[in-house]
Computed example of a mutant assay.
Amino acid sequence: MQARKRGQFSDFSSKVTSAYWLDCPHGAELNIELFNAGDGKYYNRLKEPNVDLFLILLSSNGSCKTYKHSLDYYITLSTTVSAGRYILLAGSMSVVNYSIYPKFNLVVHADQPFVLNEQPSSHELVGNAFHAVAIRANVRKDFGDGVSLLTFNDNGGFGFICENKSNRNIRFTADFQGSRNVLSSRKAFRMVDVIPAKTKQLFAIFTRKVLSEDVNIGK
């Protein structure tokens, strides 16, 4: 069985148009393809074929089933799921980093019947999805008093999230000014934020510059 969807990536700060409910009543072996269609207006794939693409598959409880990121015009993600409802997010950091709004095609293949429907999305959903990605990566540094830093790193994409489980607001400073050949979703490499009590924040996502191999994140 196969389903196709078309759309155009939009900025995370407004609305994320590429979020879908994926219902698999009998479980399935899934193969999910995402590729930049290019239209010559926002992005010409013939001249600059690579954009920054990612796929996130969440369980209905919000946990990350699997995640894929790449600097390419096309990515594919294969996984096996049990019966249930899932959330699929398809996105591009090129919208944030380069102000490129490419059109995309999303194709889902499965060996069992499934239903794929677009769902309303938000900045909060994307933030929670990347938090789930970081929890799955299980790279955590604890600072005590309920404050932790979670990071994830996948094929040119590095992100970090601050968790504040304490009962007080904290001031969090991050300095990555020594980074090389990466772009920051915050448009800066030194950031100072106040994280309210009992909250978490996706601080920034760093992505490798297109056609750059010599990459360093940090001082």
Results as ranks from 00 to 15, higher is better:
residue 111 D to M: 01
residue 33 E to H: 14
residue 169 N to A: 13
residue 105 N to C: 09
residue 120 P to N: 01
residue 118 E to N: 08
residue 39 D to Y: 00
residue 161 I to C: 08
residue 154 D to L: 14
residue 129 A to H: 10
residue 41 K to Y: 08
residue 52 D to W: 11
residue 167 N to K: 06
residue 72 D to E: 14
residue 137 A to Q: 12
residue 137 A to F: 13
residue 39 D to F: 00
residue 120 P to Q: 02
residue 72 D to T: 10
residue 75 I to D: 13
residue 62 G to T: 03
residue 37 A to C: 00
residue 52 D to H: 12
residue 92 S to F: 07
residue 147 V to R: 06
residue 93 M to E: 08
residue 142 D to H: 09
residue 105 N to L: 14
residue 117 N to P: 04
residue 168 R to P: 04
residue 125 L to K: 02
residue 91 G to C: 13
residue 88 L to I: 15
residue 88 L to K: 09
residue 171 R to E: 11
residue 134 A to V: 03
residue 155 N to H: 15
residue 135 I to D: 14
residue 77 L to I: 06
residue 34 L to D: 02
residue 47 K to P: 04
residue 140 R to D: 10
residue 153 N to L: 02
residue 131 H to A: 04
residue 155 N to T: 11
residue 84 G to C: 08
residue 165 K to Y: 02
residue 87 I to A: 06
residue 48 E to S: 05
residue 113 P to D: 07
residue 64 C to G: 10
residue 164 N to L: 01
residue 96 V to G: 05
residue 75 I to F: 15
residue 83 A to E: 15
residue 70 S to T: 14
residue 51 V to Q: 15
residue 143 F to I: 05
residue 167 N to D: 14
residue 81 V to S: 07
residue 85 R to I: 00
residue 40 G to S: 04
residue 44 N to D: 15
residue 39 D to V: 01
residue 116 L to E: 05
residue 98 Y to V: 15
residue 57 L to W: 11
residue 78 S to R: 11
residue 97 N to K: 09
residue 112 Q to I: 01
